[in-house]
């Protein structure tokens, strides 16, 4: 099988652990992150506004407390969430994002502090100008704070769940398949229900030489092979 894979364009960062396991981090770019930032800002300023309403009744001292809250909200809100709540502020969680170290490990205090304190630099010259340019230009969508802290923002959720294929007979494939190919057949069985029947048959016809069948029969045969690969008894 030809392997033009490495040069294919994708937004995935691949990491090989010392145990030889390959992890893929699906990096998140400017659009979802900007939306997450907006959501977080709404939450932050909503809370601050509520606090102001309450604390304003206390006069000058209350205003002082509010300023302290403002400081904490500005600088520690993202840090605390990223360290203690699974690497995601509420906004990031809503967009299915999360912050991790570039190696895939959960983000820790120093990294979260650095990446969030350096927001001040990313904000320059105005409205996250540098951050946006750095994020779009760097290979792993890192803004300057991310580059300094060695962190990346990744997509957390796997793509939407797909219903399991209908039950049926299981048949061993007529020829040995490598891992990628086995995965293909399983994907076909899992995602088949999302495709229209004509398209399914069309795809199955591509493997007519493999199954010896065409049309709906080929589809059924491929599903049977997938069930066998998934470990169902023949």
């Amino acid at each position: 099988m030809p392997q033009p894979m490495p040069s294919l364009l994708d937004t995935v960062r691949r990491i090989e652990t010392p145990e030889g396991i390959e992890l893929s981090l699906r990096l998140a770019g400017p659009v979802p992150r900007a939306l997450a930032w907006v959501a977080d800002s709404l939450i932050r300023y909503g809370v601050l506004w509520g606090l102001l309403m309450v604390l304003a009744t206390l006069g000058g001292g209350g205003f002082g407390l509010w300023l302290i809250a403002l400081f904490l909200m500005e600088w520690l809100y993202p840090v605390l969430f990223e360290v203690y709540v699974d690497g995601a502020t509420p906004g990031k969680k809503a967009l299915g994002l999360k912050v991790v170290h570039a190696g895939g490990a959960p983000v820790d205090w120093p990294a979260a502090l650095i990446r969030n304190l350096l927001r001040a630099v990313d904000f320059l010259p105005a409205f996250y100008g540098f951050g946006l340019v750095a994020m779009t230009g760097s290979r792993d969508f890192q803004r300057l704070g991310d580059l300094a802290a060695g962190t990346v923002v990744i997509h957390r959720d796997p793509p939407a769940k797909i219903p399991p294929p209908p039950p049926g007979p299981a048949l061993p494939p007529p020829a040995p398949l490598d891992l990628v190919e086995q995965r293909l057949l399983l994907d076909f069985a899992e995602r088949g229900s999302a495709l229209n029947p004509a398209r399914q048959a069309e795809l199955a016809d591509l493997l007519a030489g493999f199954t010896g069948l065409r049309g709906q029969a080929g589809v059924e045969r491929l599903r049977a092979h997938a069930r066998w690969l998934a470990g169902e008894p023949p």
């Binding site: 099988m1 007529p174 994907d187 995602r191 795809l203 591509l206 030489g209 493999f210 010896g212």
Partner: peptide, 27 residues
Amino acid sequence: EAWDLELGFRRLAARLARSGRAAAGVL
């Protein structure tokens, strides 16, 4: 349209055809 599956199936078919195990007219 499951483009990824189509691409994978084409590759699989091509491999099988090359290895001679597949019947002639591979799709």
